[in-house]
Amino acid sequence: MADIEKVRVDKWLWSVRIFKSRTQATDACKSGKVHVNDSVAKPSQLIQREDNLKVKKNGFQFQYKVTDLIQKRVGAPIAQTCYEDLTPEEELNKYNEWFVGKGRTEFRDKGAGRPTKRDRRKIEQLKDKL
């Protein structure tokens, strides 16, 4: 991309779309959820190519290797070329295991009240068919 030698870690995390806003990236650094080369990173810490980042986000531990430095937010396809995802497979599967069966909840129209015994039986029969 550019001939940049070092970039602030919070700015880089935001520009490669790991966090939606720079404020979120800064807050993650301040709360100790970002590590650069196995040491806790402050938002203003400078990173360079080949640095390893560990980011704790939403209960998951992601690992990245910096391959390119950018300072401005870019499109997702370009952003993905700036890092190498080193997150272990079991960490990625943790999300799939958590999400399985967490589909949309059932709902009834407002004012319909509780289902009657007959309605409940019909609902159970329908679920058994699925």
Rank of each mutant, 00 (worst) to 15 (best):
I47A: 01
Q48H: 01
Q48R: 03
Q48L: 00
R49S: 03
R49N: 00
R49E: 00
R49L: 02
E50S: 06
D51K: 00
D51M: 00
N52W: 00
L53P: 00
L53S: 03
K54G: 07
K54Q: 07
K54H: 07
K54S: 11
K54M: 08
K54T: 08
V55H: 02
K56C: 09
K56T: 09
K56V: 14
K56D: 13
K57E: 04
N58K: 13
G59V: 02
G59A: 05
G59W: 05
F60P: 03
F60S: 14
F60N: 07
F60K: 12
Q61Y: 08
Q61K: 15
F62N: 00
F62K: 02
Q63S: 13
Q63W: 15
Y64C: 05
K65A: 05
K65G: 07
V66K: 04
V66P: 07
V66G: 01
T67K: 14
T67H: 11
T67L: 15
T67G: 06
T67Q: 10
T67N: 13
T67I: 04
D68L: 09
D68M: 09
D68T: 05
D68Y: 09
D68V: 11
L69W: 05
I70S: 05
I70R: 06
I70P: 01
Q71S: 13
Q71M: 10
K72M: 09
R73Y: 12
R73P: 02
R73I: 09
R73N: 05
R73Q: 05
V74R: 10
G75P: 11
A76V: 14
A76L: 12
P77W: 14
P77H: 09
I78P: 07
I78R: 15
I78K: 12
Q80F: 08
Q80Y: 08
C82N: 11
Y83P: 05
Y83I: 04
E84V: 08
D85N: 14
D85V: 14
D85M: 11
L86M: 12
T87I: 10
T87K: 01
P88L: 10
E89W: 13
E89M: 13
E90R: 14
E90T: 13
E91L: 12
E91T: 15
E91H: 10
E91M: 13
L92K: 12
L92A: 08
N93L: 13
K94G: 06
K94D: 10
Y95R: 14
Y95I: 15
Y95H: 15
N96D: 07
N96E: 07
E97H: 04
W98K: 08
W98M: 03
W98S: 03
W98T: 08
F99E: 04
F99D: 03
F99G: 00
V100S: 05
V100R: 08
V100W: 06
G101T: 09
G101D: 11
G103I: 02
G103K: 04
